[in-house]
Amino acid sequence: MRHLLSTEDLGRGDAVRILDTAEEMSAVGDREVKKLPALRGRTVVNLFFEDSTRTRISFEAAAKRLSADVINFAAKGSSVSKGESLKDTAQTLEAMSADAVVIRHWASGAPQRLANSGWIDAAVVNAGDGTHEHPTQALLDAFTMRRHWSRLNRNASTGADLTGLRVAIAGDVLHSRVARSNVWLLRTLGASVTLVAPPTLLPVGVEHWPCEVSYDLDSTLAKGVDAMMMLRVQAERMNASFFPSAREYARRWGFDDRRLASLDSLGLKDTIIMHPGPMNRGLEISSAAADSPRSTVLAQVRNGVSVRMAALYLLLSGDTREERNELTKVSSS
């Protein structure tokens, strides 16, 4: 693995390897010294063109637990807001000998651009790009689901995938990088996915995706769901006529108290409720649902650090320079 840009092109082997490594990383959090020397002397740059404190501190904690040096580069309030280009920023980071660049960007494809442009030699980790992908979020979601699924099936999670797991993802799929990354990764891991959204918040072309699509949350739940993932919905979408009102949205597509209660009456006693955060309580999820024992919201945050440690470790610990030389040799011959 040279970069982590998307889950669309992440094979089952690499995906399971990241999840397995994350299992080992999660044990570090329980130890006396919550730190490993594996990335000593490596420099990880968190390059954020878009604010996201949660994602940044998660990556920062992950890199620091692996003993990497961390540089936070917020594109706001820096040379970037004065119009410095991605190219110039990349070349600056290259001059600083960054080994990995964790990039968050409002523009879809910016991480891929950074990785493939030749501007920089570092490993690139996509920490969320526009409405494209957020691969580490999907991996931490899969990690959370795998632990749950293994516990239910009384299997070891290491080495396992998600075959047979039924996942529903509800909300603003159109603008959601989390939904996209989850759809590809969950397919790769063998889960079956149903997207639930108002038709206005599903992309044209969704019919080609490896999942079911439904406009009706209740009927999806009635068919049986093992993991119910709610996506953040921005209330301002209402102003662009994606839906008439927050109230109508919450009633039709929100995970409210009535739907929480319906899980019991449907016999879905083990169904978990997931949310990537930050939550809009009362819009896509009710407080009772968010705070219920079914909610994995905090476990997702915890698992995020383990998964990001795994990704950074797997990208940075090997002899990447040599791999790169091999690649150049192949391509130039």
Binding site: M1, R17, D20, T21, E23, E24, M25, A27, A38, R42, T158, Y313, L314, S317, G318, D319, T320, E323
Partner: peptide, 11 residues
């Protein structure tokens, strides 16, 4: 670690 191919950690 930086001289060998990546090794996945074990338990």
């Amino acid at each position: 670690l930086s001289r060998q191919p990546t090794r996945a950690p074990g338990p």
